[in-house]
Structure formats: C-alpha cells, structure tokens
C-alpha cells in the first residue's frame, strides 16, 4: 500500500508542470524514504532526476517499493480539476493498475476522487557519476528563465561561459547576436564559484524547457565542468530537488 498526502495541491501542480514538457510519461519510484523519478527526454539529450523526501508529506506510507507509471499529460488534466489550496492524497494498492487521487477543499466541505490508469513503462535508469563541477553559479530562477527566453530568439545554440568574473550567456544567429553577463552581486542573489573557467554550448530549446520549474524556487543552481552535461537544479522547498542534465553540443 502506498499513500501520500500533501497539504497543498499547488506544490504537486508545480512539480508536474516542471516535468511534463520534457517527459510525457514517466515512472515514480516510491519507497519508504520518499518519491524519486529519473527519466530521459525522447531524444536522449537530457535527463531529469527528481527527489522528494517523505517528510514533505503530511502523511506518508509506503509498505513496499512501488513503481507507478504515469502519463503526465493525463495527470495534468486531473490536477487542473483541483484547486491549488486543496489537500491531495495519492494512493495505490500493491500491484494495482490505478492511482487514486483525492482532493479535499481547504474548508473540508468538498471532496473529489479521481482514478488514473497506471502504465507499464519499461524505464531504464542511468548511473549519474559523481562530478566535481569546476563552476557553480547560483542566480534568481526568474533571471535564468528570462535569459533563456531572450537568447532563444537569436539562435538555437546557447554558449555558456563561466569565469571568475561571472557567467556569460551568448547566442549568435542570422539576425544578430546577444551576450548577457551576470557578475557576482554583493547582495548575494548571484554567486559564482569557479575552480577553472568552462565554456560549453547547449541547445537553447532544452534550457527553456528546464525553466518550467521556475515557480518551484526563487533560486536555481547551475553547475558546469569541461565536456560533461550541464546540471540545472531547482530545490523543492527543503524537501528535495528537480535536477536537469543536458548533454553539451560537441564540435564536429
């Protein structure tokens, strides 16, 4: 038996919004310690890893490890029927083929129960190696979203260059070019830790997709090392994270 109750559906909506653009279907791996998800996009260019500890939930019970295969678009449709301040309980019996979602209004005078068909997804998990990132940048999540949006107007490719002076985002296309540089600020909303400078090129389309997680957190953490995937991490309150890994473009 798996049962988890969140006091606010808004958080679940934000999490699913952060995933559904890049993953249409995915498996939630539920265990005693919490809920995990790991999946690649269809093109195998990026990988999403989510972790939500059990103490995020008002009530959490998971008697045995369970994998719940979900169609995230269908889950979005169900979540649209709920109000953000509803409490939500998700429940599944062992070996069940359905997930139950119950929404309870804040005034507790309305309950709505939904059943969502579970999918049998054959999902492979990748081993993510421990990486000592040469550059780690923290910045406001809204600033990162704005930069990704603005650069994608110019080019499909985005170059991210990180030095001790700051982080620079560049795009160069037919209509012209753009360079946006952020330096470390004294008020601490942008911080840049650099062991060695790194410059890598990425597909802007994916960076834009990652910024769907912006409502989850004020800050985003960007980590880079030479010739390894970029890591873009959004914390989920104090209870977990969504990490997006993006393979760099390589010179032909």
């Amino acid at each position: 038996m798996f049962e988890a109750r969140l006091s606010s559906t808004a958080l679940l909506k934000k999490i699913v919004d952060a995933l559904k653009e890049i993953l249409h279907q995915s498996t939630l791996d539920c265990s005693d310690s919490g809920i995990q998800l790991q999946a690649m996009d269809n093109s195998h260019v990026s990988l999403v890893s989510m972790s939500l500890r059990s103490d995020c939930f008002e009530k959490y019970r998971c008697d045995r490890n369970l994998s719940l295969g979900l169609d995230l678009r269908s889950l979005t449709k169900v979540l649209k029927c709920a109000s953000g301040d509803d409490a939500v309980t998700i429940k599944s019996a062992d070996k069940a083929d359905k997930l139950q979602l119950s929404f309870e209004s804040a005034s507790m005078d309305r309950t709505a129960d939904y059943e969502l068909r579970l999918l049998n997804l054959d999902q492979e998990h990748l081993a993510i190696p421990e990486t000592d990132y040469a550059c780690v940048v923290h910045m406001p999540a809204t600033e990162f979203a704005r930069i990704c949006r603005d650069l994608s107007t110019f080019s499909e490719s985005v170059v991210i260059a990180c030095t001790k002076d700051g982080i620079k985002f560049s795009a160069n296309g037919e209509m012209g070019s753009v360079n946006i540089k952020l330096s470390e600020t004294s008020k601490g909303d942008v911080s840049v830790q650099v062991e060695e400078p790194v410059t890598l090129s990425f597909a802007g389309r994916y960076l834009n997709t990652f910024t769907r997680a912006t409502p989850l957190s004020e800050k985003v953490k960007i980590s880079m090392a030479p010739e390894v995937p970029l890591l873009v991490e959004y914390p989920i309150e104090d209870y977990g994270y969504i990490r997006y890994y993006l393979a760099p473009k390589v010179d032909e």
């Binding site: 690649m40 195998h44 990026s46 081993a127 190696p129 010179d251």
Partner: peptide
Amino acid sequence: KSKQGSITSFFTKK
C-alpha cells in the same frame, strides 16, 4: 559546426 551529444554517452545504464 557543432552537433548535439547524447546524454547516454556520459551516463551509462545501471
């Protein structure tokens, strides 16, 4: 000219 790398060339199957 650059081409898009695959995430599976960095992370291997468990």
